[in-house]
Simulated scan of single mutants.
Amino acid sequence: MDNTPLNPAALNLPALNPAALNLPALPARFVGLDIGGSKTRGIVWSEGVITSDFSVGSTNVQNVTPETAAENMGTLFARLDVSEASQVYAGAGGVDTDDDAAALRSLISPFVPGAHVSVVHDTRLLLAAGGTTTGVAVIAGTGSAAWGMNQVCQEARAGGWGYLLGDEGSGYWLGREAVRYSLERMDSGKPVDELTAALLKYCQLQEPGELIAHFHQGTTRRYWAAASPVIFGAAENGHAHASALVDQAAKDLAAMAAKVASQLNISGPIVLGSGMGSNVPALQEAFISHLAGLGYSDVQILKQDPIFGIPLLVATQAHATQG
């Protein structure tokens, strides 16, 4: 449990002052959840102080079985002090329809009887964690997506189709493309190079040909997304194809951001975050460069967990309800 006071300045975020933003005061006690593909983090805010902070495995029924999701959710709420919490605000990947949101609400509600439960796509958390309720949020993690809102509350999104249909620029995409590169070299009779050797080491395999069965049998998208440091490491060492993959990932992410910004007729801010987006300088630099080429210069890199955007979203929701 973390009893650290909520200090936006220490988090490198704009100070959250509901009064200055013409928003109502925050509830006395509320719960924030960030439900990702590999983990779920929960935080309880009480009178502006974080009184519980705990993480478990994924509770997203699109990524794990309903039984696993329920078990993990039970473990999480057993560690969070949610007594007297009036609201739960959750951001989750893959929440594209009302049915998606309803499925997660039904999973959460039994653990917080009487509390109002809101479920939104996790890109909203990312944008709010950047200190704004308008602009474009870009997720670059296991998957990828862009979402935005303008000053008149119009919304738009791009990507987020999932790994079978898209997720260009994501960790999974990078891992898969490294496999394809290695197999193409094998088919052409070329020797194992630095990128393929590093990939084989990650997979604990001996030969490129073993990648085919390994990819199709028993590995997950999170497994291949976790291989992305292999590509970033090779790129940092000057591997031409790895560098090209990193640049292409950034280009695809920038294109998604620009598509959303164009639909909303806004110039920014564009906030890049999630695992890769917040932590890989080479991807960040290329992303900023490609957006500049598209005419967008108001770009920021999120350095904190998206869950810290939840207080702003809760205050904004209260304002909309009262209005």
Rank of each mutant, 00 (worst) to 15 (best):
R185Y: 06
S58D: 09
R222D: 07
Q284H: 09
R105F: 02
V179T: 13
G268V: 11
A250G: 08
D187E: 15
M1P: 13
A19Q: 13
Y223L: 02
I301H: 01
L21K: 04
P311H: 12
D98W: 00
T51W: 06
D81N: 15
A226N: 15
T142V: 09
Y296D: 03
A292R: 14
I288D: 01
L13T: 12
D98G: 05
S274E: 13
A28W: 00
A101H: 10
V88T: 08
S118L: 09
G42S: 07
L107R: 01
G91W: 04
G273I: 06
G131E: 02
A85F: 08
R124L: 13
Q284T: 07
E285M: 09
A137L: 08
G277M: 04
E210T: 00
E71N: 09
E177P: 02
M276P: 00
I266T: 08
A102Y: 01
S144T: 09
I288N: 01
A78L: 09
S278T: 05
A15W: 02
P208T: 11
D305H: 14
S243E: 14
V299F: 08
A137H: 04
V299L: 08
L80P: 08
D193M: 05
H121S: 12
N17Q: 14
V136Q: 04
L33F: 09
D247H: 13
V136I: 14
C203H: 01
L80A: 07
A137P: 06
L76A: 09
N17L: 14
Q248H: 13
R180T: 14
R29C: 13
S170A: 10
A85Q: 10
A213C: 03
I139G: 02
S228R: 02
M73A: 15
G130T: 08
A261G: 07
S297D: 12
L107H: 04
D2A: 07
G143A: 08
R79A: 15
Q154Y: 01
F77I: 09
G159V: 08
V112F: 09
A102F: 00
T59F: 02
G32H: 06
G233W: 05
S289R: 15
A227P: 10
E207Q: 15
A242N: 03
R79T: 01
G275R: 07
S118P: 00
P110V: 07
Y181C: 01
S144A: 15
L164Y: 12
A198L: 10
S228D: 04
A282I: 02
N22E: 14
K190C: 03
G114E: 12
G209Y: 11
G130M: 07
V179N: 01
V49A: 11
W173E: 06
E194L: 14
P281D: 06
L312H: 09
E168M: 05
H290M: 01
A257N: 02
T219S: 13
A258S: 14
A178L: 08
R176C: 00
G293I: 11
A78C: 03
L126Q: 12
G171N: 03
V136H: 07
L164S: 10
S274N: 15
S297P: 00
L264T: 12
H216Q: 11
N265G: 10
T59A: 11
V31Y: 06
V314H: 07
N63F: 03
Q62R: 11
R185N: 12
A257I: 03
P306D: 05
N7C: 13
I266Q: 05
L291V: 10
A145K: 01
A25Q: 14
V119I: 14
